[in-house]
Design a binder for these strands. Structure first.
Lengths: 355, 355
DNA sequence: AGCCAGAATGACATCGTTGTCATTCAAGAT
DNA sequence: ATCTTGAATGACAACGATGTCATTCTGGCT
């Protein structure tokens, strides 16, 4: 896939090979410019600029003539040129871990809605959980001089953004805080969410609760498991270390964890799964299991209500996250801020098994 | 939302470098330009350009000096200026109906992957099923002079794109064909998918099959219902017109349809739901129903396999759609093309009820 | 009549990059 | 020794928009 695109990273950029027959080749008609409009309307270029930008010092009939010329020629301002002059490109750049992940897609939608599209464009890219790619995508976006950068960090450090930030680029992290830079962050209330899960299970009489969590190297994973221990302690419930299983959402590791947790000689009566992929894998495997434990999942699944039993979840609020990000970016503040977005426990039945 | 608007409207813009002698005109670093790099490396600006673009006529030690200067200054090419010179902004614009819809999100991911992000940036926007917004978003993107536009049409006509296309913008429709313009299209094999559903149900002995479809004003909806009639006819099965229900996926209309189809005096034994939202609503309502009909759904649901019974679906292939789009955009062809992407029936149990 | 304020408009430089064309210089050909 | 050639480099003008500043033209005031 090269063609019109030159690939990225280390300079030099390779030359895009130009196929004369390619649909990307020479235009039949040059798009009209302000100069063309000016000529058509019999005014100076600068007057067209005034009209386009809604400046007030244009006489009514001049305005008419110019607007008519704009319509007739189908003029559209070239945003690239505008950016060159003004320094920023009226765009919001967003680097998420996976644009097809419903969580990030929903954040994207909120951001996009707030961006009042047409004026502010949203550029989206995925890191696919690869630190190098995160950097590459983020810096590629920065070359477009966006008005702001939203990033779901996956790399250990985001200090490669320092030059951009020194140049005035506002940066906001989502899902996890950024490292190595001082920037805003919008995070879910992981601790509170897990506490709600524990409380909910305890309210239904459970005292032996197992925990299935992600790699502890991940920030959210650490917060959630810490929240679990704290919530259990607050309830006076004992945490059996064998029953806190942290690892990848792979079938084998989840299977091993479940075998331990549900060991017939001494099974837990309830289970918390700390993220989406773990939940799905656990559900898959629990399907073959008799005497399923009660279950509360962190992060909602689209069809949680259609499962039987319905899946009780601690739902994050991606729309609120997106809105909070836009709020932070829109209001100037000297010190970086961290915003926590509340999560909601949605009872649907899977936690209501008798212990 | 006024922060960046404030940034873009009036000067004074970062002009603080006006007095470089002042110790107070402190580090509001302007991003370095080719000029800065050239000065640092002791070469002409044009030579830096050659290095950055990988032209071959640069002496090895000049190359070294320039590359070192680039690294030291943290230089990044300003893509806006490049666009101004070259006419296109190394970006792909994509207008979908809803970026948070898993189908479109998956297409977006495929496109983004093929775009080798960093060089080719992906701009995404949603029309939210509003024709006016589709136009606004698409034209807003066009002002950025992208290399290509991918659009999931919702408006009646896309002829507002004609000026852009005359200027050489390649356009490709997805999901539905565009109207009023001659452009490529990548569509799912709706007819074949419904035929597969009918065949599958017939193979399990069903002869009375009901159909729940979308508003017939929608292209995909028309194709699918036509496919249903054709497939039934091909099998020698009779279609009872009362049992082909087209309408919005609202609870009331789906409820009414289900009551008709499942009328105890003469119920269908199987059901086809022709899109995602209809499927979800039908599943919701069927949950309270005894003697559920067999079911095949067009379009996969994320957790179809976890439902009980497992949901048998005709799955579209958004990744293949995205890839096909990129193939079309990258390969020269004089006439617009329409590509059909195969769909796959995934049996998971819900179609295997005895009739 | 003379003057001025303010509204309306335009000329021009500029943003950072790349295409075009000109220049320099050394090595090889004559 | 002169000419040719090609490699390496640079000067300069675009690209389309906007900020600055200058100019023209009103009408209202002395």
């Amino acid at each position: 896939m090269s063609f019109w695109l030159a690939r990225h990273i280390p300079y030099p950029y390779p030359k895009p090979l130009s196929d004369p027959r390619s649909p990307l080749s020479a235009p039949l008609h040059r798009r009209p410019t302000m100069k063309d409009v000016a000529q058509a309307a019999g005014v100076a270029l600068k007057t067209v600029s005034r009209v386009v930008n809604g400046e007030s010092t244009v006489a009514p009939d001049t305005l008419d003539r110019v607007q008519q010329a704009i319509t007739e020629l189908g003029y559209r301002r070239n945003e690239g040129a505008r950016q060159l002059r003004q320094g920023r490109s009226q765009a919001i750049a967003m680097v998420v871990r996976d644009i097809a992940d419903p969580f990030f897609a929903a954040i994207g939608r909120a951001v996009e809605t707030r961006a009042e599209t047409g004026e502010l464009v949203v550029m989206i890219g995925s890191s696919h959980d690869e630190p190098a790619r995160e950097r590459e995508v983020a810096l590629g976006f920065c070359a477009r001089r966006p008005n702001a950068l939203i990033i779901a960090p996956i790399a250990k450090r985001q200090d490669y953004l320092l030059p951009e930030m020194a140049d005035g680029l506002p940066v906001c992290a989502v899902d996890r805080p950024a490292q190595g830079i001082a920037c805003d962050a919008v995070l879910s209330d992981n601790t509170g969410g897990i506490r709600a899960a524990v409380d909910h299970l305890a309210a239904h009489g459970h005292r032996r609760i197992g925990y299935l969590g992600d790699d502890p190297a991940v920030f959210t994973s650490r917060e959630r498991v810490a929240g679990f221990r704290a919530a259990m302690a607050a309830r006076g419930l004992q945490v059996n270390e064998d029953e806190v299983r942290l690892g990848a959402p792979a079938p084998t590791s989840v299977g091993a964890a479940l075998r331990t947790l549900l060991d017939p000689s001494d099974p837990v009566t309830a289970l918390i799964t700390a993220n989406n992929r773990l939940t799905v894998e656990a559900l898959r495997q629990l399907d073959h299991v008799e005497d399923r434990p009660a279950l509360v999942a962190f992060d909602d699944l689209e069809l949680g209500e259609l499962l039987r039993p319905g899946l009780t979840v601690v739902a994050q609020d991606p729309e609120a996250i997106g809105n909070a990000v836009m709020d932070l970016l829109a209001s100037p503040h000297p010190e970086p801020r961290e915003v926590r977005i509340p999560v909601t426990l949605i009872p649907r039945g899977s936690a209501e098994f008798p212990p």
